[in-house]
């Protein structure tokens, strides 16, 4: 592995690890919240804010970095029943659509997210443009990912977008 590749894979591990950290934060603050209220009879409110921010981030950051195409929830009845050349056409169509529509919306999304600097979260006083910035990351990541699927499909290469299916059919009696 070249040094560059090593750094890239190291950076990816960190980015990927952030998903786990976000979920840990949710879990730990929930426990703190229950313990503070039930055991110490001194309820706290900031935990709710950490949880909801982590919830947004775990979904959109996770979609940007951690989730692979095989993990995505899709309706694959048709896709999995057609041949690879047809699948390739399907991939070309849907990846072109999503890259196009997300790219067209990107300036408006940027405008909204930066506009939200006018509001702050209640306890942590975090500006909402920071909280919602993950949506910009998500949009760009999806554009890159589906751009790549489009590119591979144009070149005639396979892309595994569905999970390895359990093909064993039920045993008819």
């Amino acid at each position: 592995m070249t040094a560059l590749k090593r750094i890239a894979s190291w950076l990816y591990s960190i980015a990927d690890g952030l998903s786990a950290v976000l979920l840990t934060a949710m879990f730990v603050t929930f426990i703190i919240q229950v313990v503070m209220r039930y055991v110490f009879n001194y309820p706290v409110g900031w935990t709710v804010e950490v949880q909801t921010i982590a919830w947004i981030w775990v979904i959109l950051w996770g979609q940007s970095v951690t989730v692979s195409e095989a993990d995505e929830i899709r309706f694959d009845i048709v896709y999995s029943s057609v041949s690879e050349p047809v699948r390739r056409i399907f991939r070309l169509i849907f990846s072109a659509f999503i890259v196009g529509i997300y790219a067209i919306a990107l300036p408006a999304i940027w405008d909204y997210v930066t506009f939200m600097k006018i509001e702050e979260t209640s306890y942590l006083d975090l500006r909402f443009d920071y909280v919602f910035s993950v949506y910009v990351i998500f949009t760009i990541a999806v554009i890159i990912r589906y751009g790549w699927i489009f590119y591979r499909s144009v070149r005639g290469k396979k892309v595994a977008i569905t999970a390895a299916h359990d093909t064993s059919e039920p045993l008819e009696s």
């Binding site: 786990a20 950290v21 775990v58 979904i59 996770g62 979609q63 951690t66 993990d71 929830i73």
Partner: peptide, 10 residues
């Protein structure tokens, strides 16, 4: 934690 985060995002 990582696996659960992944399922959550899906």
């Amino acid at each position: 934690f990582r696996q659960s985060a992944k399922s959550t995002a899906s």
